[in-house]
């Protein structure tokens, strides 16, 4: 090992200084400041009295019924979304792994949902789900699946699944692109060997393709889970947590607590819980990516 602060270290420090400064300012400092805030009772409606309350914000949180509702909603949303993303993205990546004319056009088309801003995605689905004039009712009615227009987002039993559908539609392209890389990296002699051993298409898929994709699959699933549990935009525009508490997810709970009840201390405590869960989830993610660069 070279000297601790040799020439290499000094020049590296110079090159890294801007990025470190920026990340300290906009990521590290805020996350610790947030922890600090979460030990105080800060209400913007009462700016002059911000007492230190220790862990009260956290204990309040865990005894709050609505918080647990939001946890259940978040878990439901994430499990449904990530499962659907996994299945659909796998099918798409298998399709795009074939050689056929128009493959490039197809993969360009696939980028359209990915590029659309979430807000525009949300207003699009809001219009599709519209119970009066939306396309979903229109299609189902014209195909005779329903004999009268139905309520969609306003129906508690359907809300979270409909929002998940909008989320999946936008996230699937990225997942499919990433899975495709992992498919393409499977050496073709593995397939040759399996073929020689007399494995059919299905057996080759089960015994060669799936195991080889496992690491890539893991990364994609962890990434999409992190995206799902923090997702906010669709809930804000499609339902505002409703109807009732049917789509009252954690991120919405944080938003309401912080910016509608103006209670910043407990809002910070909640978002800290979310950050810790994310960090726990991301352990594998970071380890794998970190080893690669």
């Amino acid at each position: 090992m070279r000297h601790l602060f040799g020439y290499e270290e000094r020049s590296a420090a110079l090159f890294l200084a801007p990025v470190m400064l920026v990340l300290m300012g906009v990521a590290v400092f805020p996350i610790f400041y947030s922890l600090y805030i979460s030990f105080f009772r800060i209400k913007l409606t009462r700016p002059n009295r911000t007492p230190f309350v220790g862990l009260d914000n956290y204990t309040d949180l865990f005894t709050n019924e609505l918080f647990w509702v939001s946890v259940v909603r978040t878990v439901t949303f994430s499990v449904v979304s990530v499962t659907a993303i996994a299945v659909i993205a796998l099918l798409i990546s298998l399709l795009l792994n074939q050689n056929f004319r128009g493959r490039r056009v197809l993969s360009t088309i696939l980028l359209v949902p990915w590029a659309i801003p979430y807000v525009a995605n949300a207003l699009m689905w809001k219009w599709i789900y519209d119970s009066g004039y939306g396309a979903l009712n229109g299609v189902l009615y014209q195909l005779d699946f329903i004999d009268k227009y139905m309520i969609w987002l306003g129906d508690q039993d359907k809300t979270i699944f409909l929002i998940a559908n909008a989320f999946v539609w936008k996230e699937v392209p990225l997942a499919a692109i990433l899975l495709l890389v992992s498919l393409k990296s499977i050496p073709s002699d593995l397939y040759q060997a399996a073929r020689v051993d007399g494995a059919g298409v299905w057996q080759r898929f089960i015994h060669v393709t799936l195991p080889a994709m496992k690491p890539g699959f893991m990364l994609v699933m962890i990434y999409e889970t992190m995206m799902a549990i923090r997702h906010f935009d669709l809930f804000f525009i499609l339902t505002e947590g409703g109807p009732g508490d049917a789509s009252h997810v954690l991120s919405w709970h944080i938003y309401v607590e912080t910016f509608r009840n103006l209670s910043f201390g407990s809002g910070a405590a909640m978002s800290y819980v979310l950050a810790l869960v994310t960090f726990a989830l991301s352990y594998v993610f970071i380890r794998t990516l970190g080893r690669r660069i």
Partner: peptide
């Protein structure tokens, strides 16, 4: 360090 900053949820940064 840089990878860790990548996974911080945006909503956790909003309050601070």
């Amino acid at each position: 360090f840089i990878l860790i900053t990548r996974v911080i949820p945006d909503i956790a940064l909003v309050v601070p």
